[in-house]
Amino acid sequence: MGKGWCLFFLFWPVAAVASCAMAPLVGWSFPYDNAQAASNLGMRIDGLFYLILIITAIVFVGTQAVLVYALWRGVNNREPRASHVHGNHKLELIWSIIPGAILLFLAIYQMNIWADFRIKKYFPEAAVKAPIAEITARQFEWRFRYPAIGKILQQKPQSDDLYSVNELHVPFGKPVMIQLRSDDVQHSFFMPALRIKQDALPGLQIPVWFEANKPGTYDLVCAELCGWGHYKMKAHVIVEPEDEYQTYLKNLTQQQFYDGLGKVAATEIGTESEATEK
């Protein structure tokens, strides 16, 4: 039976390493586009993840190997009695200091990424200057408020603000910042492809910035269980070239100030409704 246990404990590190190695091939990895993050910050976050994965893998495989070795020796050793050991100061120092050092290293190593991601002082300046939209999470949808074309987003709603729901458009090629709010309970703004996740809290306005490294349509989901309809709280974030983004805003303006006459969503020039606004 002893050898059986050896095999048992040998099996787990082997299985863990094997499943990790094949994970990207069978789609068990991060979602979207071959597991690569769709933003540079996301790739740095992934780097942290892989670093921690490697460290824990080495520790896990190492301890399992020692365990199996000890068991194997015990199985083949016919000595009838065990010997008592009353602590080993040196050993204890080693197994306290090494993990402590690793943790300290990780804590210091991730600081830059954390600061770039979370601390407003380190946000890209261009993004902070002109937040592109205010995002209001509510049960169970995402509502967006953009400033009018050429204007700056104000704290309070303005009469020429543009609104949309469950479809956020952002320009490609520059970092963008949004103001995150919640109307009711806690939600979480989660864009898995960009590795962006930020809780939305009622009563707070939280700035979040991101920059996709290629244009495309990305999922935006709620990552905080917010009620029975949590699962349906999803939206699309469409990252598109600047000119397409401007066209979108123009169309949105036309639609929103539509007075029931004339054509909407003609691609060029302002409409009569825009004209009446002035």
Partner: peptide
């Protein structure tokens, strides 16, 4: 419908 529990099904 904004202001009610009817959410958007835009997707």
């Amino acid at each position: 419908i904004a202001g009610t529990y009817m959410p958007s099904f835009k997707l």
